[in-house]
Amino acid sequence: MKKNIIFLATALVLSACQQKDNFDASGNFEADEVIVSAQQDGELISYSVQEGSKLKTGNKVGQIDVKIATLQKEQAEASIGALNQKTSNVDEQNLLIRKQLAVQEAQLDQQLHERTRTVNLLKADAATRKQLDDIDAAIDQLRKQIAVTRQQLSVNDSNTNTQNRGILSEKAPLEKTAAQFQEQINKGQIINPIDGIVLVNYALQGEMQIIGKPLYKIANTNTLDLRAYITGTQLPQIKIGQTVKVRIDQGKKGYKEYQGVIKWISDKSEFSPKTIQTKDERANLVYAIKVRVKNDGYLKIGMYGEVVF
């Protein structure tokens, strides 16, 4: 009887050791968590984030008051509009001068025609030389007047363009200012950056926000990483991209198994965390690895898991 009891005790101890060592690494599940922060100062006038809610990338989940930035943008746009009214239209300024030039050119054409007629009459002794000289003098005078009028048009064009460039040179800085205010307006919108579940909510509607203040924490839990630890002797047995077995304890139901892929292996050793078991518990230095696992809804951040190579 005593021998049976000793045998049974020995078997239980061996069985326990086998169960305990029936894994190659262990650790906890984690996810890439993103803390969404305010990008603008002001009152949180609308906010729809709740812990546990699922959000999609690009969802607008809140609005910070941006009335001041909106008014400043409108002021900059009004200043741009005022600049356009200050500019001059050179065609309107030159309209009278162009009419004067047209009259002078018409008079020149008439004098040239009269000179041709006078030359013919002079050949027939029906006109005098003085009449031809007077016409030539009038033609020369008209040509000088036309040259001055055209120069005046050119000067008006140059002066007006210079004046307009000086006025419109203020437009580019004002447009940049309006764009800056628009950026502030855009940052007043709280846009969710990733697909995921809200883990923690830090804000409430009506609160005052400042740039950089956390609003909520979100993580994509469709896939989780099991951060586990292995000994130096196990390191040569694994590689990145390797498929391994991951399991979680379901109590009386035993283990629930998943397929995982090794996504990362640390290149530096560290002291074994107190809460982590290794296959060789005597090992002081271990290496961290991450095993990517597709989540079926049962896996939770922080849950304990085991890896079998």
Rank of each mutant, 00 (worst) to 15 (best):
A137C: 08
L101Y: 03
K252R: 05
V13I: 06
I248K: 04
V119L: 14
N28E: 14
Q50L: 11
I194Y: 02
A288S: 02
A106P: 05
T149S: 03
K256F: 01
T57G: 14
V200S: 14
G81W: 03
Q145Y: 04
Y216E: 15
G251D: 09
N4I: 10
I35R: 12
A126H: 11
V307H: 00
Q110S: 11
A82D: 02
F23A: 08
R98D: 15
L174Y: 03
Q111G: 10
K176V: 08
L226M: 00
S46M: 10
F271Y: 08
K239A: 12
A78N: 11
Y298W: 09
W264P: 13
S269A: 10
K294G: 06
A178D: 11
V66Y: 12
A203G: 13
I265W: 09
G58E: 11
S154N: 13
W264Y: 14
H113S: 14
I35H: 10
K213F: 06
G166E: 09
Q237W: 07
G62Y: 04
T223M: 10
N164L: 01
L153N: 06
E33S: 08
E92Y: 02
R247E: 06
G58I: 08
P173M: 00
R247A: 11
E183Y: 07
L108C: 03
K300W: 01
S37F: 05
E270H: 05
N120W: 08
G254V: 01
L95P: 15
L96K: 15
D280M: 12
M303E: 00
R165S: 11
G305C: 03
D91Y: 02
A106Q: 07
T221D: 00
Y202W: 09
L174T: 03
K86T: 07
D133L: 03
G260K: 04
I167A: 07
T162N: 14
A203P: 08
I185C: 11
S272F: 02
Y216H: 06
E30T: 05
A78Q: 06
K245E: 12
I230C: 01
D280L: 14
I139Q: 11
N222L: 08
Y216W: 04
V148K: 12
P236D: 15
K300C: 04
P193S: 07
T243N: 14
Q152A: 08
I211V: 12
D195E: 12
I301M: 09
N84E: 08
N284T: 09
K217H: 01
E183R: 12
S53M: 08
K99G: 15
D41Q: 07
E33L: 00
I194S: 04
F7E: 15
V148L: 15
Q205E: 13
G305Y: 00
I301P: 04
V246P: 01
L55H: 00
E105F: 01
I191T: 15
I210R: 12
Q63A: 12
Q110W: 10
N84S: 12
E270S: 06
G196L: 08
D91C: 11
Q75K: 13
D140W: 02
A288F: 01
A203E: 01
T233L: 12
L122R: 01
E43I: 07
K274E: 15
N164Q: 07
L132T: 05
T160Q: 12
L226T: 04
L153M: 08
L168Q: 04
G260F: 02
K176T: 15
S79M: 04
E33T: 09
I64V: 10
T87C: 06
N201H: 07
T162E: 09
D140Q: 06
Q152L: 05
T118Y: 11
A16H: 04
G232D: 09
D32Y: 06
